[in-house]
């Protein structure tokens, strides 16, 4: 299947000399939720800005469903909806006027029935005649989503949709995104909240200092990089790890009452079985067992950190 969005060798250097994007290649599949993770200043918003026509690229190409975003910008942009990070909306107009304006701007014929369906799905219908200034922060964010959806886009960019919002509203936004995905909209989400990517995304891309560090299916990423820990609660404290267990990646807790075994999830079955055999042979008894795995957040931090360390080595 051809990608719905193809970004090739995209670079952006601002007038100040700051290089926000360094030859980025990325392709987005139709209907997926793609989370672009990265720390502040990594280049996420610049990338979105270029695709949407707000920022001019220094070099590289962007193709939206087969349409070049510069030469065939009308067709390319018609397919994209953008929800910006900031709550930028004209406060003194009604919700209905705001979404009607957005639809008209994209050259679409008025379709009150579609707008009604959309506003109902975003639970904005009851407030359609309210001026935006009277709405809560969460409602305003919904209005931004409604404006982005007003022209029936196939691709929706959500730039930090839950930055600075409370937990309840975040859950709310996630429900909205899940609903949109079900309706077939491709969603590209930028965030620096890992749990958001973990909750929503099919694939995860990590961007750092203008470079795509990694693109992976979320589940594969988790299993590939997801290091697990197995903790054994000992019946009797150990002075040291028995030499018979030296082949296993074991650590003794400071209290000497816990043995911690670290393993990669794909090598789990053989390793754990061997460990338990050796523990029995060495006469180590335990009263409880628990496992934990690294979150996407830890994976992300280590990726960004490793990338920085490698870069420092190169320049040294």
């Amino acid at each position: 299947m051809s990608p719905v969005l193809a970004i090739s060798q995209l670079s952006k250097t601002y007038g100040s000399g700051f290089q926000a994007l360094k030859s980025v290649d990325l392709s987005i599949n139709r209907g997926e939720v793609f989370a672009l993770l990265g720390p502040n200043g990594a280049g996420k918003t610049t990338l979105i800005g270029i695709v949407c026509g707000i920022v001019t690229a220094t070099s590289g190409t962007v193709t939206v469903d087969g349409h070049d975003h510069v030469h065939d910008y009308r067709k390319a942009r018609a397919k994209i909806g953008l929800v910006p990070q900031e709550l930028t909306v004209d406060a003194f107009i009604t919700v209905w006027d705001a979404v009607s304006f957005s639809r008209g701007l994209f050259g679409k014929t008025p379709d009150p029935a579609y707008l009604e369906r959309m506003l109902r799905s975003l639970t904005l219908w009851d407030r359609k005649d309210s001026k935006i200034v009277t709405l809560s922060g969460g409602m305003k964010r919904r209005v931004l989503i409604a404006k982005a959806l007003a022209h029936e886009p196939e691709i929706l960019f959500l730039d930090e949709p839950t930055a600075g919002v409370d937990v309840e509203l975040r859950r709310d936004m996630w429900a909205v995104m899940a609903q949109l995905k079900q309706s077939g909209v491709t969603i590209i989400l930028t965030t620096h909240y890992i749990d958001e990517a973990e909750e929503m995304a099919d694939r995860v891309g990590v961007i750092n200092k203008g470079e795509i560090v990694l693109v992976e299916n979320k589940s594969e990423l988790m299993s590939k990089l997801g290091r697990k820990e197995l903790t054994l609660q000992l019946v009797e404290p150990l002075a040291a790890i028995p030499t018979a267990l030296g082949a296993h990646r074991l650590a003794l807790s400071d209290s000497r009452t816990q043995l911690i075994y670290t393993y990669d999830s794909d090598s789990a079955p053989a390793g754990i079985t061997a460990l338990f055999d050796d523990l029995a042979a060495a006469g180590v008894r335990f009263s409880d067992v628990s496992t934990s795995e690294r979150s996407l957040e830890e994976i992300f931090v280590s990726l960004v950190h490793d990338g920085d360390a490698a870069r420092q080595r190169e320049t040294a």
């Binding site: 949407c52 707000i54 942009r77 930028t88 909306v89 957005s102 701007l105």
Partner: peptide, 16 residues
């Protein structure tokens, strides 16, 4: 005004 409040993004990202 749209530049000041930021709503200019919508004009710039529209097929206009």
């Amino acid at each position: 005004f749209p530049r000041f409040i930021g709503t200019i993004y919508e004009i710039l990202s529209a097929p206009v």
